[in-house]
């Protein structure tokens, strides 16, 4: 781990604060993601995990603190800014338009246009191109039993929807992929496919932030585990040196970590 520590984090947060009225969702929180790793973020309900990743992905603008991408400070004003910088997020709420099709949703905000006059001047969408891409990505994921790529998202099951959201992130993320409880609605086999996809993304060299309440998944995949508690990073542990019950004890406050970087 000492090598890891000398490397510059690809995505870094310092002193992040986010208040919602009286609630302090992020309380001077630090965050580090290193290149090529899978970092799990665990914590109780309401600990501030989703707020943390929203602050990193432009969906929430922190009241205080800084975010650095590849060492350079960034100011994301919208999720789109972060996406342009290569950070792709699957939000806990999935952020999909139920009445629109799978293809429309996958390409929302980054639609492909037809080549030539029709695309340039009439700004016509390249539907065939987008449909083919969407179908390929869903097939890659292998978790789709979808008959029609133009079917409205609201006609999909909860798990299929989550699959589409994960496929969207995996397809477009180039620097960092953030997954906020990507397997929460999935069955056992479908979860397995998502876990395989996560490993696949990792093998492409793209680091992943995985928020999950599922300890076996976390301990199977993660290189490091960020334990979040009361809006702060309580500690970072190495899953190889700690048991699941340790992690749960830290998370719930039943046990105090000795140093912030238990894993170090």
């Amino acid at each position: 781990m000492s090598i890891e520590q000398k490397r510059e984090p690809i995505l870094k947060g310092r002193n992040l604060v986010k208040r919602y009225g009286k609630v302090v969702a992020l309380d001077h929180c630090d965050f580090d993601l290193y290149p090529g790793e899978i970092l799990a973020v665990i914590g109780d309900n309401g600990a501030g995990k989703s707020t943390l990743i929203k602050a990193l992905s432009g969906a929430v603008i922190p009241d205080e603190g800084e975010v650095y991408l590849e060492g350079k400070q960034v100011h994301f004003h919208s999720p789109n800014d972060a996406r342009h910088a290569g950070i792709e997020t699957v939000y806990q709420t999935l952020a999909m338009s139920p009445a629109l099709s799978i293809t429309d949703n996958m390409f929302m905000g980054r639609e492909l246009r037809k080549p030539g006059f029709r695309g340039k001047w009439l700004r016509q969408l390249d539907r065939a191109g987008m449909e083919k891409f969407a179908r390929d990505k869903l097939n890659d994921l292998g978790l789709m039993t979808i008959q029609n790529i133009n079917q409205a998202v609201e006609t999909l099951s909860g798990g299929q929807r989550q699959g589409v959201a994960v496929a969207r992130a995996a397809a477009f993320g180039s620097k960092v992929i953030i997954l906020d409880e990507p397997t929460a609605a999935l069955g056992v086999k479908e979860s397995r496919r998502v876990l395989e996809l996560i490993l696949d993304v990792k093998s492409r060299g793209i680091p992943i932030i995985l928020i999950s309440h599922n300890m076996p998944h976390v301990f199977e995949l993660a290189d490091r585990v960020h334990v979040h508690r009361l809006g702060q990073r309580l500690c970072v542990i190495d899953p190889k040196n700690h048991s699941m019950s340790d992690a749960v004890a830290f998370m719930t406050g039943a046990k105090e970590p000795e140093t912030e970087f238990e894993a170090a």
Binding site: P79, R83, Y91, S97, A99, L100, N105, M108, G109
Partner: peptide, 11 residues
């Protein structure tokens, strides 16, 4: 359809 989802997905 859902303004918040649209915002999060880049609209």
């Amino acid at each position: 359809d859902d303004a918040e989802a649209a915002q999060l997905s880049g609209v």
